[in-house]
Deep mutational scan, measured.
Amino acid sequence: GTVKVQGITIKVPNPDKAYKIAKKLAKKYNLTVTRKGNTIKVE
């Protein structure tokens, strides 16, 4: 899958794990995490 952070896309082998990490970071930096299948977008 991929993770998008402010325009940066990161390929990740485990979208579930990445999503959990993204959620933690999002809370810390007051961002929104959206997930569509293997693509995770943080904005």
Rank of each mutant, 00 (worst) to 15 (best):
P15A: 14
A22W: 15
I21T: 04
A26E: 05
V33T: 02
I40G: 02
V33Q: 00
V42S: 02
V33L: 04
G37K: 07
E43P: 05
V5R: 03
N38W: 06
Y19G: 00
V12P: 03
G1Y: 07
K36G: 03
P13V: 09
L25H: 02
R35A: 06
G7A: 08
V5T: 04
P13C: 15
V5G: 05
K41C: 15
I8N: 01
K28A: 10
V12S: 03
I40S: 05
V12N: 02
Y29D: 00
K23W: 06
A26R: 06
N30L: 10
K23M: 13
A22E: 00
V5S: 03
K23G: 04
T34L: 04
G1E: 07
K20G: 06
Y29Q: 00
L31Q: 01
T39A: 08
N38I: 05
T32R: 11
D16W: 09
T34P: 00
P13E: 11
I40P: 05
A26V: 08
I21A: 05
E43Q: 12
K41I: 15
K23V: 13
L25M: 04
Q6L: 15
K27D: 06
T39K: 05
V3W: 09
K17D: 08
Y29W: 09
V33S: 01
G37R: 03
A18I: 09
K20V: 07
Q6R: 10
V3P: 04
T34G: 03
V42G: 02
I21N: 02
V12F: 09
K36T: 13
Y29L: 09
K28E: 07
Q6H: 14
N38G: 02
G1R: 02
A22V: 13
T2W: 15
A18L: 12
K28T: 04
I8F: 11
G1F: 08
N14V: 07
A26W: 09
E43Y: 13
A18T: 02
T2K: 09
T34F: 03
T2H: 10
K4W: 14
T2P: 05
K28Y: 15
V12Y: 05
V42P: 00
L31F: 09
L25D: 00
K20N: 11
Y29K: 03
V12R: 01
K41V: 15
T2E: 11
V12A: 03
T39G: 03
K27G: 09
K23P: 00
Y19I: 06
V12K: 01
P15G: 09
T34R: 06
V3Q: 05
K28L: 14
D16F: 08
V3H: 05
I21V: 08
I10R: 01
Y29H: 04
I40F: 09
N14D: 12
K24L: 14
V3L: 12
I10S: 01
L31K: 04
K17Q: 13
G1I: 12
K11S: 12
I8L: 10
K11Y: 14
R35I: 11
K27T: 04
T34S: 07
K20Q: 12
T2L: 13
T9Y: 10
K4L: 14
L25G: 00
A18R: 01
K4H: 14
V3S: 03
L25K: 01
V33P: 00
I21K: 02
T2G: 04
P15W: 13
V33Y: 00
A26N: 02
K17P: 01
I8R: 02
V42C: 10
V42M: 04
K41Y: 15
K4Y: 14
V3D: 05
Y19K: 04
K20R: 08
R35G: 04
I8T: 02
K23S: 06
Q6S: 13
D16K: 09
E43N: 10
K20F: 06
V3R: 03
N38P: 03
N14H: 11
I40V: 05
K17L: 14
L31E: 01
A26L: 08
K24P: 00
N14R: 05
I10F: 13
K36Y: 11
K27C: 13
A22Q: 00
E43T: 13
D16Q: 08
P13I: 13
V33E: 00
A18Q: 00
E43R: 07
L31T: 01
R35E: 03
K17A: 12
T9S: 09
R35V: 08
I8P: 00
G7Y: 11
T39M: 10
N30K: 10
T39H: 11
N38D: 08
Y29F: 10
A22N: 00
R35S: 08
L25N: 00
N38F: 04
I21D: 01
G7N: 06
A22Y: 09
P15L: 15
N38Y: 02
